[in-house]
Structure formats: structure tokens, C-alpha cells
Design a protein around this nucleic acid. Structure first.
Lengths: 202, 202, 202, 202
DNA sequence: TATGAATGAGCATTCATTCAT
DNA sequence: TATGAATGAATGCTCATTCAT
């Protein structure tokens, strides 16, 4: 029973390719990574890459889809969580830490996709869909935490909060900053909390 | 008096190439733009591109340097401005609007550079330098507006504010959002203002 | 049994490319030969050339190395030959004929390399090594045929004999001369023989 | 009277270009030298090069013609010299030293031309003409020094002597040899002299 | 005549993709 | 299915030559 079925081996091979591609796209960039390199890194032949993916872009789309689906399902904040939590700051911290971890998991890849989205409609659509979901999540959270906020402002606030988190993670990852993640998370929590506090007072 | 000197024509040609390259890099991406295309868009020959730039990357670096220098000198907030303004919100709005305009002026190019920075050290260094200058500006502003804030938090706050602005501009530019720039700017002002208000109260 | 293994086909392809490159370099010159041309002559695609060689110069170096190694191993005059031959003229004729044949086998290529050596250090080093080996051979032969000759003169004589043979082959190959190879070989033998005879008499 | 006439200045400019081209062709090779480089080295503009020469090859041909004419006229051994000299070795030494000096003056250029001759008929014809003249000179000398030698052998001997001299100079110039020119010239004289001595004895 | 920016054909090289084994 | 040699279109870059000034 040691031998894996063909089906299992196929899945494993695909995973090896996906991991290699993800890693190389993230660190070197999509255009600076060629299929031969991905295959080598994955420990398979060049031909194998094309057994699993129609072309290079297909691999990118597959990874992007998988990645966004994971992010989306992992980051779901259940209604129960919202109802049970009394402390706004605790909810915020929890959400921000979650976002940080998610984004932290390949900021490089996110960055590649964000850039490719501009010129490639297909990638753009997937990425938009992902972004929309994340923004909806934040919006829903805001609905709970600052219910009086008019929808327009809520959407704007979501965009800003998302931007703040994403951009901060990027800076932590790619700029030579002495700031630790902890300090930045603290400050992000304070930022959003102050904002919501002010909103609720109005 | 009609005839331009050779010197003038050289400057014009370089400008045509720079504009074409900037425009194409921004809309299609650096790797999706080839030198022939830049030359055609600029209305010159392929060879001319190489009269002015050693290679494609050299053109990118030149544009990046020029662009960041412009941004840096244009976005300077004079001390007078800080002293004369009494209203914190007015100062913030002014700064944010300024940043918005700057980032708005080629978010696409900024995006390309941000991505290329990851894998290319040379680009990375120029970009880092630029980012550091911008962050210093924001930090200086915060020093004025929230003087009690400890340096560490101030730096963290700068990073977050910068991220929020940059990311928001990106969303406005590239995502299908109904949010108008005006609403987002209003919200950004509120976002930062609330934070500073809370700090001053502590 | 008809089917060649992939390994065999690789060797064949490389050989086709090497032969084509050698032939074109020899007849048209290194700089007048482009990679497309080599590929076409070899009956392969342009890309294939680069499957086997890093660049054009790499192909030249490979051919040069292969060629010189062949020449060096083929032209070895065994000690037995030296001991067994009693007649100096016979030894000389044998050596000269051998050299003639070797040089004759692509004088064009030799000529290219001799010229490229001047400006290209890498080629220069390989070529020097080759020349040194050949000169050593001649020197060793002279040691046997004119043992009293002081080392300095022997080395000088080797250079002269080598130059005489190489230059003569070049003339036969590329100048419109009515002189047959046979006459020139005869004369070369006489030349060297007289020289050695004179040396031995001194 | 300090000012040079236009005519004189033209001649000077052409000379500067010729010298630069000759120097660069010799050291770097014809194909590795571009017209811009020649112009820069000559201290003139690229356009100027084309005022004086139709194209790059035209410059090469001009230099080759000038050079060969100089060599031919300089190396002429007057009949008087031949008649007056009694000592064969002295005549030989004189001729060889002369040849050495001539060849020594740009062996690099000679080498380039020798190589270009193979693929370029025009260059080939000029070069052939030059070589024929030199060979005729040597042949004439041999006629004087070894009058019994049949014409065929004389021509063969000329070729061999020429090859020996040319190749020896090349080695002195481009190979790392400890041999001094003096030793090689001595040996070359002995080489040719022994041959002639042997002929006269037969 | 002199200048040097401009031209564009030409070449070296890369790489996504195919396909015979 | 796996392999990796083979393909050839595409691209970055060079350079001989032209020509407006």
C-alpha cells in the first residue's frame, strides 16, 4: 500500500509545479521566469509543465485562483465572531492580523498579479473579483462596527483600510524598515479604531 | 527664428522617447513593451532610442529618476505652509490632495517600478530612495501635527498613511469603483484626522 | 535496430552544427557567418544552435579545442619512428607531409583563429597552447636530428620551420600558384635538410 | 604663412583617419572596429570619415594599397646592391632584416588582410598582387644567389622563404616567446644560406 | 567641408511551445 | 504520462551609412 495511485502522483506533480512557479513568480517576477526554470525548480521536465498547464499564463491563472479562493475562505469572519466580540479593538486587531498573515503569504505574488492586472484583462477580472470579496468583508465588518456610517463612506473606508493594510505589508516585506510587524499592527489598529470612534461620535 | 538648434532638437527627441516609453511602460508594462514600439510611438527610429539610452532599462531608470525628482520637489510642503495653517484638517487635506495628484500622475508607472524593484536591485535602490523621501515628508508633517507621538509610532504612522494614500489612488485608477476621488479624499482626511485627534487626546 | 537513441541523435545534431560552423567560418570568416546561416547549413533551427552552444564564440572555441586536440594527437611522432628511421630526409619528409596534411585540413579555419587570437584573449590562449605543442614536437624532432644545436637555436629553428610549413600551405591553398604541393614539399624537405646538415657540420 | 591651405588640411585629415583606421584594424580587427570608433580615434566626426572614403572597405583598400606600395618601393633591392655584394650571407641578412622591418610594421594589419582576402575577392586581388611582387623580388634575389636553380624550384623556394619570414615575424609579434628578434634573424639567415649552399654544391 | 543625430536593416540570442520517443 | 531536444517567431541591440544643418 506504499505505492501512490497514478491519480495521487498527478496531484503531487501538479503541486510541485505550482509551488515552483509561485515561488519563482514571486521572487523574480512573471516575465523574468521561464518555463524551463519552473520545470527545473519543480524537478520535472519542461514537457511536463505543459501536460498540466496549457501555457505559462494558464499556470498563473490557476495559482491566482487557488490562492484567492484560499484567502477568501480562510479570512471569513463568521457572524458569530462579530456578535460575540464586544470589544471593537479586539475585532479589529484580529482582522488586521489575519489580513497581515494572508498578505504576508506571498506579497511578491500579489504584487506581480496587481501589476499584470493592468494590462491583462483576464488576470484583471480574477484579481478584481478577489479584491471585491475582500472589500465586501471589510465593509461588512464596518457595518457591524459603525452602523451609522452611510454606505458610500463605508465603501470608501473599506478601500482605505484595505489599502493601508496591503501597502503596509508590502513595505514591511520589501523596504529596509526597522519597524517591526508588531508596531505596525498596533498602529494600524489605532488608526482604524480612532477612525471608527470618530465616526460613531458624529 | 523658426529653426531650432540641434541642441534643442536633441532635447525634443529625447522627450518624445521618454514620453512614449513612460506611456507604454505605464499602460502595457515594462516587459510587454519593446524598443521598436517605443520608437514607433515616439515617431523616431529604433536606433534613435539607443542614441539616447544605453538599453531599455537605462530608459526606465532615467524616467524613474526624473519622475521621482519632480515628485520630490513638487510635493515639498514648505515650513511656512505648516506654520500659517491653523486647521489640522486643512493641512491634511492639502497634503493628501497633493499626494493624490502626484500618485495619480502615472500610477501605472509607479506600479511597474514597485514590481520591478523586487527583483532588480538597481531599480530597487532608486525606488527606495524615493519612498524614503516621501515617508520623511509625512513624518515631518506628523511631527508638526502630533508632536507628542514617539518617533517609532510616527514612522509607523507615516508608513500607514503613505500606504493608504498610494493604495487608494491605485484602486481609484484601476478598479471598477463607483467611488469618486472626492469621496475618497474626504474619507482619507477623516481617517488620518481621527487618528491624530485620538493621539492628541491620549 | 534502425532507430537511433536520443543520445545518438544529439551527437549527430551537434556534429552537423560543428561541421557547418567549421565550414562556414573557414570559407567566409567568423564575422561574416551568422548563426542563422550555420543552422540552415546544418539543417537545424536557429534555436538548436543555442541548445548546443552558449553563443557563437563558444562554438568557435569548441571547434578549436576539438580540432587542436585531434591535430595534436594525430601528429605525434612516436619515439619508435625516430629510432627506426635512419634517414634524416625520410623523417623530415614524413613530418612535413604530416604537417602539410594537418594544416591543409582547414587552413581557412586556422587562418581565422590566427587572426581572432590577436584581439580575443580566450581564443588567443587556446591557440597559443596549440602552437606551443606543435613547436615542442618540432623541437623534439630537431633534438634528435641535430643534437648539438643549442636550445636557443633549436627553439628558433622550430619557429622558422613551423612558419615555413604553415605559410607554404597557406600559399598553396589561397594563392594562384602553379606550384604543386609535391614540388613545395620537396623543396621544404631540402630546405630543412640543408639547414640541419649545415648545423651538424659546424 | 602659418595657415595651411585647404588642400593641406584635407591631406592631414585623411592621414589622421588612415592612421586611426590602420591602428584599430591592426589591434582589434576589421570587423571589431566601427566607423564611429575610427572617427573618434582620428579626432574627426563620423561624417568626415565618409567624406574621405566611400565606405569602411574603401578605407581598408586605400590603406592596403598605400601600405603595399610603400613596402614594395622600400624593399626594392637595387641591382647595384646585388652586384656589389660579394658575401651571400650579407645579402641575405640585409634582405631578411629589411623584410622583418617591413612586416614588423603592422603584422596585425597584414594578418587582417590575409584573412579578409579569403572571402573578399577585391581585397584578395590587391593582396595577391602585393604578394606576387614580393615573391618576385625574392625570386630575383635567388636567381642571383643560386643561378643554377631551375625556375620551378626557385619559385617554390621563394614561397618557402617568404613564408618563413612572415610566419616568424608573426610569432615574434603575437606569441609569448623568449626568442629575441636577433636570434631569429640569425637563424633565418642560416636557414636560407644553408639551403643555397647546398644547392650550389649539387 | 564638417558635424553628429537619425536611420533601419541586420544579427545574436531567448523562450514559449511542440512532438517524437 | 514523461521527457527534453527541436522549433522559429520575437526582441534587444549594433552599426554602416545618410543627410539636414
Amino acid at each position: 500500500m506504499k505505492h501512490k495511485s497514478q491519480q495521487e502522483r498527478k496531484i503531487e506533480t501538479k503541486k510541485k509545479i505550482v509551488d515552483a512557479a509561485m515561488s519563482l513568480f514571486s521572487s523574480q517576477g512573471y516575465y523574468q521566469t521561464n518555463s524551463k526554470e519552473i520545470a527545473r525548480e519543480a524537478g520535472v521536465s519542461t514537457g511536463s509543465f505543459y501536460t498540466y498547464f496549457a501555457d505559462k499564463k494558464d499556470a498563473l491563472k490557476y495559482i491566482l485562483n487557488t490562492y484567492t479562493q484560499e484567502v477568501i475562505s480562510d479570512s471569513a469572519v463568521s457572524d458569530d465572531d462579530l456578535i460575540l466580540s464586544i470589544d471593537r479593538k479586539a475585532i479589529l486587531r484580529d482582522t488586521i492580523v489575519k489580513s497581515f498573515n494572508l498578505h504576508n503569504f506571498s506579497v511578491g505574488f500579489y504584487q506581480q498579479v496587481r501589476t499584470l492586472s493592468i494590462a491583462d484583462e483576464e488576470i484583471g477580472l480574477i484579481f478584481e473579483e478577489y479584491k471585491r470579496t475582500i472589500l465586501m468583508r471589510i465593509s461588512k465588518l464596518l457595518e457591524h462596527l459603525a452602523s451609522e456610517l452611510p454606505p458610500d463612506s463605508r465603501e470608501a473606508a473599506s478601500i482605505i483600510i484595505y489599502a493601508a493594510i496591503e501597502g503596509t505589508v508590502h513595505t514591511v516585506k520589501f523596504s529596509r524598515t526597522d519597524q517591526t510587524e508588531a508596531v505596525l499592527i498596533d498602529e494600524l489598529v489605532r488608526f482604524v479604531d480612532s477612525y471608527l470612534a470618530a465616526l460613531n461620535k458624529e
